[in-house]
């Protein structure tokens, strides 16, 4: 861990940055961004916040690199794999649960 200067400063600076990011995330919707940009913006800031908490509060950036890689890769890769495999299935479920399309008037007349 850093030993020079005020040892508590890193926590205060991290706290201020986390609060600024949180406020930016809350205000993001007011700018009426296209939905995809809003999602990307929020997800990017979410990852920045998570990295700051893990790195500065949990001291992961002061630990050996193999520990940091085990934690980050373990959680992130598993989450991404899980999400990538189940997301296509959710579209399938949505199609199955959608109400069946009613025949149009012309189709009904044709059957008669």
């Amino acid at each position: 861990m850093e030993t020079t200067g005020n040892p508590y400063r890193v926590y205060r600076v991290t706290w201020v940055i986390l609060l600024i990011i949180t406020v930016a995330m809350l205000l993001a919707e007011k700018f009426h961004l296209p939905h995809i940009f809003l999602v990307l913006f929020l997800c990017a800031f979410m990852m920045v916040k998570a990295t700051m908490i893990a790195g500065n509060f949990m001291h992961l950036r002061f630990e050996r690199r193999n520990l940091a890689v085990m934690v980050a890769a373990g959680i992130l890769l598993t989450s991404l794999t899980l999400f990538a495999f189940i997301t296509p299935e959710s579209h399938h479920v949505r199609k199955l649960s959608a109400p069946p399309e009613l025949p149009t008037a012309t189709e009904g007349a044709h059957e008669k």
């Binding site: 989450s79 899980l82 999400f83 189940i86 997301t87 299935e89 959710s90 579209h91 479920v93 949505r94 649960s97």
Partner: peptide, 9 residues
């Protein structure tokens, strides 16, 4: 992930 699945479904 389960929440994401439910929301999309």
């Amino acid at each position: 992930s389960g929440y994401g699945f439910l929301r999309q479904a």
